[in-house]
Design a protein around this nucleic acid. Structure first.
Length: 201
DNA sequence: CCGAGGATCATCT
DNA sequence: GATGATCCTCGGT
């Protein structure tokens, strides 16, 4: 039996979903669906790992104010912020907060849901192992690149959908991964017990 | 203009 | 555990 999903609606009580602060949106995104509509078919995965970044956070791209790179973080919640890291990998964020706040949530891992074959093709893999377990890996699997930077996630080819139910999944909190500053902040959120999160096993 | 370093990953020892 | 790949942003001059 397949789970049901609903669009974030601008005129219902979901209106404030993306406008909430990153520290609240990051756990709220756990269990949501990230979906891309491609000419070849639909690709989707359930978000199982996120990190929150805010403008008062030395580890955040927005810490020094708005720049030509981080501008989507300053345009309010519900946009894609995609940037290149180490010259090779893309990282995908969901912007959050109100315009000017400089906040985003890094999506670090997905549990593959639909279009697994397409994702494996994109990654050059023959097994779903490590398919979307890491920010670079999930972008490669989903076909997310910087051409989608700044695009709306409410409608369009890349979307975030909410679970139709109201039950909250169990979430574990920890320090963030791969940063040198503000390691102590507890701003990494994972779906408890998920085997799809990033990092070593 | 220049140089350092980065919200990573695959591969090697 | 260590390393190389590879590019762009951003701060300093």
């Amino acid at each position: 039996m397949e789970k049901e999903w609903k669009r974030v609606d601008l005129i219902t009580p979901d209106a404030g979903f993306f406008r909430s602060p990153a520290t609240r949106l990051a756990p709220a995104l756990i269990g949501c669906l990230l979906r891309r509509v491609t000419p070849e078919g639909i690709i989707s995965g359930v978000i199982v790992e996120t990190e929150a970044y805010t403008s008062d956070d030395p580890a955040s791209h927005s810490f020094g104010g708005e720049t030509s790179r981080n501008w989507p973080m300053f345009r309010g919640g519900g946009l894609a912020y995609v940037y290149l890291i180490y010259g090779i990998h893309n990282c995908f964020n969901v912007t959050s907060g109100v315009p000017g706040s400089g906040e985003a949530v890094l999506v670090r891992a997905l549990e593959p849901c639909r279009g697994t074959g397409l994702m494996m093709d994109n990654r050059g893999l023959r097994e779903p192992e490590l398919l979307c377990s890491g920010p670079g890996r999930l972008c490669q699997a989903m076909g997310i690149d910087r051409s989608m930077n700044g695009s709306s996630l409410l409608h369009g080819e890349l979307q975030v959908l909410l679970p139709s139910g109201t039950e909250r999944p169990p979430i574990s909190v920890s320090g963030r991964i791969g940063i040198s500053r503000a390691r102590e902040l507890q701003r990494r959120f994972v779906l408890s017990g998920s085997r799809w999160i990033s990092g070593r096993r």
